[in-house]
Simulated assay, not measured.
Amino acid sequence: MHDLTLHLFIFLFAAAFLAGFIDSIAGGGGMITIPAMLIAGIPPLETLGTNKLQSLFGSGSASIAYARRGHVNLVEQLPMVALAMLGGGLGAALATIVPGDVLKVALPFFLIAIALYFGLKPNISDIDRTSRMTPFLFGLIFVPLIGFYDGVFGPGTGSFFMLGFVTLAGYGVLKATAHTKFLNFGSNVGGFIVFALYGVVLWKVGLLMGAGQFAGAQVGSRFAMKNGAKIIKPLLVVTCIALAIKLLADPAHPVRIWLGM
């Protein structure tokens, strides 16, 4: 592809900043960055590869910010991050043979279900509750599974991690958000390594957007830590609904094709 013009670089930086802000609180940053790169004329495969590079900066920045305030111990979370990275790498490597249409069909409805869960369940707060799964099983089963999904497809990964931490691990909303970011970083690393080996990462674009992601995540994570569940819950609900609508609005979505819309 040809070099991008200055105004497109500015556009991509701004999109990455906004994505970093939203993603550090509720996930769903890819809903902004992937369409932005496609609008800028970047081919789909290079968009996916470059998105993994710039996402590393956002998830890494948010992880550092939450760790500095004591909401997550990065060292203790390393085993789960390694499993998320393994899942992300396997997902990216197997993306060509996984039935993508199945994921596209199911994802909007999963996201709507997550939005309804967080929006309608009254007792979800920043207070930890009793866990339904041991940390060992959570890390061994749930984490690599979501990491694999991130490598194969990606949108909504942060929301799925959030749902797992709240419903299975019993974490409060803010603690779940803090731990989600580092796992998302791990799955991004796994996917990025595979895409980089395939040579589909645009480094100049990815690093520029990474700078925007890093700055946006710093601002967003501080905003989340200041306001806690009262801002994370509604933003998570809005993000899930918006992502579901965006996916269903695509004329190429299998559901629309099946319905002849």
Rank of each mutant, 00 (worst) to 15 (best):
Met1Lys: 14
Leu4Lys: 12
Leu6Asp: 06
Ile10Ala: 12
Leu12Glu: 13
Phe13Gln: 09
Phe13Asp: 07
Phe17Pro: 01
Gly20Gln: 00
Gly30Leu: 11
Met31Tyr: 09
Ile34Thr: 06
Ile34Val: 11
Ile39Leu: 10
Ile42Leu: 05
Pro44Cys: 01
Lys52His: 02
Leu53His: 11
Ser55Lys: 09
Ile64Ala: 05
Ala67Cys: 01
Arg69Asp: 03
Val81Phe: 08
Gly89Glu: 07
Gly91Met: 03
Ala95Gly: 05
Val102Trp: 11
Phe110Leu: 15
Ala113Asn: 13
Leu116Cys: 09
Leu116Ile: 15
Tyr117Cys: 06
Gly119His: 08
Leu120Trp: 07
Lys121His: 11
Asn123Met: 04
Ile124Met: 07
Ile124Gln: 04
Arg129Gln: 13
Phe138Gln: 03
Gly139Asn: 12
Ile141Thr: 06
Leu145Ile: 15
Ile146Arg: 08
Phe148Trp: 07
Pro155Asp: 06
Ser159Asn: 11
Val166Trp: 12
Lys175Thr: 10
Lys175Val: 08
His179Leu: 14
Lys181Glu: 03
Phe185Cys: 10
Asn188Met: 07
Asn188Trp: 06
Gly190Lys: 11
Gly190Asp: 13
Phe195Pro: 10
Phe195Ala: 15
Val200Gln: 15
Leu202Arg: 11
Ala217Ser: 14
Ala217Leu: 04
Gly228Leu: 14
Lys230Thr: 10
Leu236Phe: 06
Val238Gln: 00
Thr239Cys: 04
Ala249Asn: 14
Asp250Arg: 03
Ile257Phe: 01
Leu259Pro: 00
